[in-house]
């Protein structure tokens, strides 16, 4: 079960029976999940259930091997696409643990990323007879400053090296800044709330809420219900042992909060036994 918009169109983002392994160990054991345009989904589950693996596989991390199943984005199978192509087509992953790239300033990195993604979008639009703009360096600087202000990031951030010496909260903000600039149509946020104090959580959530809209699908991966006080999901899924075992509305997150994963598992077992 997953989100339904009541339309007969192809879902925007559809994971079907996905199996994936790392170093010969199977982590994902048949994940099914569908996200339609405009929907916010939350994926919850205990440590080791495979949530982060799912995020990496969606982004195309070469460490993981997909052994079965498919991921379709706007009707196209993306599993053969390298990570950069996925990004250019509008997918985005906010990393739980962003990597440090010494010596590369945020501004230089972001300019290249935004330019590449914008150019790809412009080409795609042109191919379909429409038009979309690429970006000039001047526009880029203006846009970057604007988004940084929204996320309450100091101007000096632009000249700092990518994730180097960033605090936990700064790293998360930097991820949301990247998302805001790349304007994906499908965003996966992996534990973006972890390690944030309440003020940072508010700012980050605001950033996410700014992006969300009728065009965009979102998958929020989180361990705790806390984030969902700030970002209202349309659907909640529970993942355990490499599968989505339960899906429902926002109330599922509250039930989980009350009972814990063990409790929820027990009540699920009861339901299926009866």
């Amino acid at each position: 079960m997953s989100g339904r918009n009541g339309t007969g169109n192809t879902p925007m983002f559809e994971i079907d029976n996905l199996h994936a392994e790392i170093d010969g160990k199977e982590i994902l054991k048949g994940v099914d999940l569908t996200v339609n345009q405009g929907e916010i989904h939350a994926l919850m589950g205990p440590n080791g259930s495979g949530k982060s693996t799912l995020a990496y596989v969606i982004a195309g991390d070469p460490r993981y091997e997909v052994t079965e199943g498919s991921i379709r984005f706007k009707g196209e199978d993306i599993l053969e696409w390298p990570p950069d192509e996925r990004a250019r087509k509008g997918l985005f992953l906010a990393f739980q643990y962003p990597t440090v790239i010494p010596g590369v300033s945020m501004a230089n990195f972001l300019r290249m990323a935004v330019t590449n993604v914008r150019n790809a979008r412009a080409e795609a639009a042109a191919a379909e007879g429409g038009s979309a703009q690429s970006i000039t360096p001047r526009e880029f600087r203006r846009l970057m400053r604007e988004k940084m202000a929204l996320l309450k990031m100091d101007d000096s951030f632009a000249t700092r090296y990518l994730n180097e010496g960033f605090s936990g909260g700064e790293k998360k903000r930097a991820e949301i800044l990247q998302m805001a600039l790349l304007e994906p149509t499908m965003a996966v946020l992996d534990e973006t709330d972890s390690g944030l104090d309440i003020d940072a959580l508010k700012v980050v959530s605001e950033g996410v809420n700014n992006l969300s809209g009728p065009e965009v699908g979102m998958l929020l991966i989180t361990h705790y219900q806390r984030l969902l006080n700030f970002i209202k999901p349309d659907f909640v899924h529970i993942m355990t042992e490499g599968r989505v075992v339960e899906s429902g509305g926002p109330e599922l997150a509250h039930e989980l909060e009350a009972k814990g994963y063990e409790g929820l598992r027990a009540s699920l077992a009861e339901t299926s036994a009866s």
Partner: peptide, 23 residues
């Protein structure tokens, strides 16, 4: 992988890391 997930090609990612190294 991180840089590619932001739309940089593999060559661009490698160049960026090397240029950062000598920055």
């Amino acid at each position: 992988f991180y840089l590619m997930s932001r739309g940089l090609s593999q060559d661009e990612a490698m160049s960026m890391i090397v240029n950062g190294f000598i920055e």
